[in-house]
Amino acid sequence: GVAVLPAPQNLTVLSINMKHLLMWNAVAQLRETVLYSVEYQGEYESLYMSHIWIPSSQCSPTKGLECDITDDITATVPYNFRVRAMLGSQTSAWSTLERPFNRNSTVLIPPRMEVTEHGLHLVIKLEDLGPQFEFPVVYWSQEPGAKEHVKVVKSGDSPVHLETMEPGAVYCVKAQALVKAIGRHSAFSQTQCVEMQGEALPLA
């Protein structure tokens, strides 16, 4: 009989800081390039119109064994995904993600952070994680009894001045990543401290 193209196996989703990656095992075909097609449906489609599947915006088709499904997921509901293999005119059966994926299960890790001083200015540069993120930043002086200050930095694309500081003092900073769409935040980053210049004239 005609050899049937096997369906891709072991579909999984790896999601870190709201970047969602669907992955699957290769369909082995000697010296031939297999393409894969990815489709999805949200909870609404699965309940109200289960026959409706939407082609993924990035991977319909793709040669790779993974697909960035971040742009396809635009609601905090469970999403079903399915993948099939294609070789010439042959098409495999669909293989469906075992458990639907919900973006509120993404792993949130603290942002990379760089703290510098410019004259008397305490400046922070945060990792740019995309528009869904805000960054609560906590900073404090190491003077005894010093209070913690909190500032929410809206985006990570450029270094931001946190505060104008006292000469010679040491200031410490830590930050976390916050995603309002899923109502969760990461742990705090490691604390970074920096010493302000002494009495020298501040540089711009």
């Binding site: 400046v123 270094p159 931001v160 001045h161």
Partner: peptide, 9 residues
């Protein structure tokens, strides 16, 4: 913008 290095906000 402070000499193309950082910005105050």
């Amino acid at each position: 913008h402070v000499n193309h290095t950082y910005l105050m906000h």
